[in-house]
Simulated scan of single mutants.
Amino acid sequence: MLNNPVWAALTGPQACFAEAAGNAARYLPEIAPFAALSDPADPAAWRDLATITDHALLTGPSITPRAGWEVDRVTPGVQMIGQSMSGVEDPEAVPLTEKDVPEMLDLVARAEPGPFLKRTVDLGRYLGIRDSGGRLIAMAGERFRMPGWTEVSAVCTDPAYRGKGLGARLTLAVAAGILARGELPFLHAVHDNENAIRLYGRLGFTHSADVVFASFRYTG
């Protein structure tokens, strides 16, 4: 499952957020930009994908497009797993819900953690930390969820508040909720975000695989 987490999520616990056709599926557009194939080496799966979208963001160890699809962009990344880590709940972390989405989107625009849309919050538990004036300054939450595993995602801190350990605290708090359900946490990071990768290592995550985040366009 970890080598194809989006497919495992969209055909499993998060099927309610999926649009699917044969051996291809994607998240509903307002939820997340990711799509998946049952087998990225199967030309038929790529044909199925073309029936539901003409632009797809996929992730996995290695992805080569088949006939009719072209590469827009490929970003190398890493996958890390928390098989032996311990989560830590944070008393200052507050649950974030649909009513907080405007603030969450504003924080995402400032901190640029990666894809986060107006309904991404529906995918799982999101936590945030606010400053003394009530402004949202850091957050983290859950994205891909598959049997036994849930991804920690959208870990971000307002640039003015970085270096205070807020991202680490929220990562551990989100992981604590995942572990409490009897699941294991995992996460992704782009390969050149060395500070984040070192931080996740200190928190107990270990390298699982090298992956890519690849955007493809259907040309027919």
Results as ranks from 00 to 15, higher is better:
residue 1 M to L: 14
residue 10 L to D: 04
residue 11 T to M: 13
residue 11 T to D: 08
residue 15 A to T: 11
residue 19 E to L: 15
residue 24 A to I: 05
residue 28 L to A: 14
residue 29 P to K: 06
residue 29 P to E: 07
residue 32 A to F: 07
residue 35 A to R: 05
residue 37 L to Y: 09
residue 38 S to N: 14
residue 45 A to R: 07
residue 47 R to C: 09
residue 47 R to Y: 06
residue 48 D to C: 13
residue 49 L to Y: 09
residue 53 T to H: 02
residue 56 A to I: 08
residue 58 L to M: 10
residue 59 T to S: 13
residue 61 P to C: 09
residue 62 S to M: 10
residue 62 S to T: 15
residue 64 T to Q: 13
residue 66 R to G: 05
residue 68 G to T: 03
residue 69 W to D: 05
residue 72 D to S: 12
residue 72 D to W: 06
residue 73 R to I: 07
residue 77 G to I: 04
residue 77 G to A: 12
residue 78 V to W: 04
residue 84 S to T: 13
residue 86 S to M: 10
residue 96 L to F: 03
residue 96 L to S: 01
residue 96 L to I: 04
residue 97 T to G: 12
residue 98 E to R: 15
residue 100 D to V: 07
residue 101 V to L: 08
residue 102 P to W: 10
residue 105 L to I: 13
residue 105 L to R: 09
residue 105 L to F: 08
residue 112 E to P: 01
residue 119 R to F: 11
residue 121 V to H: 10
residue 129 I to F: 02
residue 129 I to V: 14
residue 130 R to D: 03
residue 130 R to Q: 06
residue 131 D to H: 02
residue 131 D to K: 03
residue 132 S to A: 14
residue 134 G to V: 05
residue 136 L to M: 06
residue 138 A to K: 00
residue 140 A to N: 02
residue 140 A to G: 07
residue 143 R to G: 05
residue 151 E to I: 02
residue 152 V to E: 02
residue 152 V to A: 02
residue 155 V to Y: 00
residue 158 D to L: 00
residue 158 D to T: 00
residue 159 P to I: 00
residue 159 P to E: 00
residue 161 Y to K: 00
residue 162 R to A: 00
residue 162 R to I: 00
residue 163 G to L: 00
residue 166 L to Y: 03
residue 176 A to E: 12
residue 177 G to E: 04
residue 180 A to H: 05
residue 180 A to I: 03
residue 181 R to H: 08
residue 182 G to D: 07
residue 184 L to A: 15
residue 188 H to T: 09
residue 190 V to E: 11
residue 192 D to Q: 11
residue 193 N to W: 03
residue 194 E to G: 05
residue 198 R to V: 04
residue 198 R to F: 02
residue 200 Y to D: 00
residue 210 D to M: 08
residue 215 S to H: 11
